[in-house]
């Protein structure tokens, strides 16, 4: 049996004194892909941000364990160095910081070693090309003025460069055209390996056709109300969330 690579235990998260994530638990074994689906506003992004250590989200209770290590108290950069990755639903624009330099800085920190500039450039450029991210994007400001789909490809590029142990991808499929979706799915699939875990947050069954999840969780009002196999996503697609909504009221 493979080990548990990522574990969320009874997590409760509040934002501005409002409890958004409620007693949520999740356990991902190495090699597995899990998917979380849920209505708008059910708390998926809140969960993702708090797993990455966003300071605006207060963890009221619970634990986050990455590869056996409790990271609940770690800062976002420490989590990244321990190889947790979050692909953002809405990557924030940082005018004045070029994508290329940002990637280089990020890689330097996560790997914790000086990597020769030339080597880094080569690596970044070749991964960018593989994701159809044109060279001139690298000298543009980070996430500024890029289209929705371009931003998602850039998120995927970062995942690819940082080679995380656990990747949380928050609606990385939203905004991608048909070809880009395939490409991004391919990259996420290639990350799939016996020593990593992947958590996908998505609204669409389509992504899960490319990336077969081991488990699908339904999130309603900050809680996982049902977990199941890949077929659960299909059920949701045809029947909607209504029948699960009741489950969180009680």
């Amino acid at each position: 049996m493979s080990k548990t690579i990522f574990e969320v235990k009874n997590l409760e998260v509040s934002v501005e004194d409002k409890k958004i994530v409620n007693d949520l638990s999740l356990s991902i074994k190495a090699g597995e892909v899990h998917a979380i689906m849920g209505r708008n506003g059910s708390g998926k992004t809140t969960l993702a941000n708090s797993l990455m250590g966003h300071p605006a989200y207060t963890v009221l209770a619970g634990k986050v364990i990455l590869d056996g290590e409790d990271i609940t108290e770690c800062s976002p950069d420490e989590r990244a160095k321990k190889r947790l990755f979050l692909g953002f639903q809405y990557p924030v624009a940082v005018p004045g910081v070029s994508l290329g330099n940002f990637l280089r800085t990020s890689l330097g920190f996560v790997r914790g070693e000086e990597i020769p500039k030339k080597e880094l450039r080569k690596l970044i450029k070749s991964e960018a090309t593989a994701l159809n991210v044109p060279d001139d994007f690298l000298s543009r400001s980070l996430n500024e003025g890029f289209s929705g789909g371009e931003k998602k490809r850039i998120e995927t590029l970062q995942m690819q460069l940082l080679q995380p142990k656990v990747a949380i991808m928050d609606e990385t499929d939203s905004g991608l055209d048909i070809d880009a979706l395939k490409l991004v799915a391919e990259k996420i699939n290639s990350l799939r390996s016996p020593d990593r875990g992947i958590l996908l947050i998505t609204h669409y069954q389509r992504l899960l056709e490319y990336i077969k999840p081991d488990q699908v969780h339904v999130m309603i009002k900050g809680k996982i109300v049902k977990s199941g196999g890949a077929s659960l996503a299909l059920d949701l697609e045809s029947r909607g969330y209504d029948e699960f909504a009741g489950a969180s009221n009680g």
Binding site: P76, D77, L86, P91, F102, F109, V110, Q158
Partner: peptide, 10 residues
């Protein structure tokens, strides 16, 4: 947060 989530320290 975005920068820090990519490993860049505070």
């Amino acid at each position: 947060f975005y920068l820090q989530s990519r490993g860049i320290d505070g």
